[in-house]
Amino acid sequence: MALERSDVEKVAHLARLKIEDNDIPEYTRNLSSILELVNQMQSVDIEGTDPLAHPLDATQRLRHDEVTESNQREHFQQNAPATEAGLFLVPKVIE
């Protein structure tokens, strides 16, 4: 299945990924060949076969609704690119 340049641009936007203009042709080719590879799946009859999400079909455990972690905001925010008064700073969102 051959993708168009516009498909790649759309997917890149959905993924919030800025890709360089001159990389788009290569990505378009790569993605098309990957999709061609995975399209081998489409001819397989999987009627009545349930999807497998966890290899041992385990279900997600729930824990008791109790506080287990202490507040380590300052510690964790040491890795943040920009903070102020305990908040993460981003460019202005509301004009």
């Binding site: 995975v38 799946m41 489409q42 397989v44 999987i46 076969t49 349930d50 999807p51 497998l52 999400a53 290899p55």
Partner: peptide
């Protein structure tokens, strides 16, 4: 459905 779900079903065949 055509991709992720299908791949998960094939995953069961492989297992």
């Amino acid at each position: 459905d055509a991709y992720y779900r299908k791949a998960q079903r094939i995953r069961r065949l492989i297992q």
